[in-house]
Write a protein that binds this DNA or RNA. Structure first.
Lengths: 108, 108
DNA sequence: GCGAAGGTCAACCGAATGGTTGAATAAGTG
DNA sequence: CACTTATTCAACCATTCGGTTGACCTTCGC
């Protein structure tokens, strides 16, 4: 249970965390530097980073006393697939979709 | 702020709610019928539907004593745009798509 | 009008979020 | 060693989530 895609969508549901991911698009960053633009405490940012890590959206590696945060965008793939597939399925009429199911999965 | 995109991602972070959205791809449904495949109480489903409504992903219209749930997939647009901004990813992977089908629709 | 069906509401529960502050740990720097 | 920097941990707090049960209201069928 407790699927990864749940964690990914949950992680993306907070503006602070989305902003962090966007910052990390540019380059890896230390925790302190991630926290700098935000008005909340470092501990709060640390918790956000934990949630992003749990979702697999970032990884953290400690070098010396600095913990570097690195974007792991491939963790978004499952969520992208879900959301885009949904859009594509929605565009189909349902009979065609059922045909697809029958063809691809051998169900009826 | 409490932005809409926050609500959309939060709504999508629960497997029960994603399953409900997938069910509604086929047709509008009454609350009781939405609840039927799930093992939880009707009240629990009602709460999930409230969360989906808050996100704008469904609308509910009462006709007689029956409340009809209708998919509003355009509410996903903003979330799709955001998530696609990490577009260096392969957008649609066939294996993952099959997994999606199995998980979200393959429930007999 | 009566009873059943369709849904929500209210109260409760345990767990998770999102934030705080202050102490603690770890690792460079003088 | 002493100090400072980097980061987490622990405790606390208010709010939300995901679920339950039982009461309630509305509407349909008889």
């Amino acid at each position: 249970m407790s699927e990864q895609i749940d964690h990914v969508f949950a992680a993306l549901s907070d503006g602070t965390r989305r902003a962090i991911l966007t910052m990390l698009l540019e380059d890896d960053m230390a925790v302190t530097d991630v926290a700098e633009p935000f008005e909340m405490s470092l501990a709060a940012i640390s918790k956000h980073l934990t949630i992003l890590t749990r979702a697999g959206l970032i990884s953290q590696e400690k070098r010396g006393r600095v913990k570097w945060c690195k974007l792991e965008p491939q963790a978004m793939r499952e969520a992208i697939v879900w959301i885009e597939s949904f859009g594509q399925l929605e565009a189909l009429n349902y009979d065609a979709f059922e045909d697809f199911l029958a063809r691809e999965l051998g169900q009826s």
